[in-house]
Amino acid sequence: MLGIDAARVIITEALKAGAAAGMKPLSVVVLDQGGHVLAFERSDGASPGRFEIARAKAHGAVMLGMGGRAQMARAEAQGYFMAALSGVFEGRILPVPGGVLVRDASGAVVGAVGVTGDTSDNDAIAAEAGIRAAGLQPEA
């Protein structure tokens, strides 16, 4: 189970990783395995629309069982499929890096993290750092 304490660690450490790497201001959301928001934080200077972007990245990961990189590859190979899924999920998926599955020690999906604000690849790097800091396994 992914709880509020782990979510707070993920957010804190993802933001630290972004700042240490000189990334633009990030926004980080943590969802549980049902796609419900556990926690969200936006760095000073991050644009206000970032919550929806971060949530869509994480929501796609947890609902589809694949991280943003895998979703992007699927969108490139089968754009019609991802477009249809966007309709199914009322636009709440964004198939790009920065949506990262969270797995526990047994490999079970316990939630997802969405990060936005820099390049999608850098967003994923920050998310992965936060997840590892919480003692969990990222799957981007």
Score class of each variant (00 low, 15 high):
G3E: 14
G3N: 15
I4G: 00
D5L: 12
D5W: 03
A6V: 01
A6S: 14
A7N: 01
A7T: 02
A7H: 00
R8N: 13
R8Y: 07
R8Q: 13
V9P: 00
V9E: 02
I10G: 07
I10H: 08
I11M: 07
I11L: 07
I11T: 07
T12D: 15
T12L: 09
E13R: 14
E13N: 13
E13G: 04
E13H: 12
A14Q: 05
L15V: 14
K16M: 10
A17P: 09
G18K: 01
G18D: 02
G18V: 07
G18M: 05
G18Q: 02
A19I: 10
A19F: 06
A19G: 14
A19E: 15
A20L: 13
A20T: 12
A21F: 02
K24Y: 09
P25R: 04
P25T: 10
L26T: 03
L26W: 02
L26I: 09
L26C: 02
S27H: 04
S27D: 07
V28I: 11
V29I: 14
V29K: 04
V29G: 04
V29P: 02
V29Y: 04
V30Q: 00
V30M: 05
L31M: 07
L31K: 01
L31P: 05
L31D: 07
D32S: 05
D32I: 08
Q33H: 11
Q33K: 15
Q33A: 15
Q33E: 15
Q33Y: 08
G34K: 05
G34E: 11
G34I: 09
G34W: 10
G34H: 14
G35C: 09
G35R: 03
G35H: 06
G35D: 06
G35K: 03
H36R: 13
H36A: 14
H36W: 07
V37T: 15
V37D: 08
L38E: 06
L38Y: 01
A39G: 03
A39F: 00
F40N: 06
F40C: 06
E41Y: 07
E41N: 11
E41S: 13
E41I: 05
E41H: 12
S43C: 09
S43V: 07
D44H: 10
D44M: 08
D44F: 07
G45F: 04
G45R: 13
S47H: 13
P48G: 04
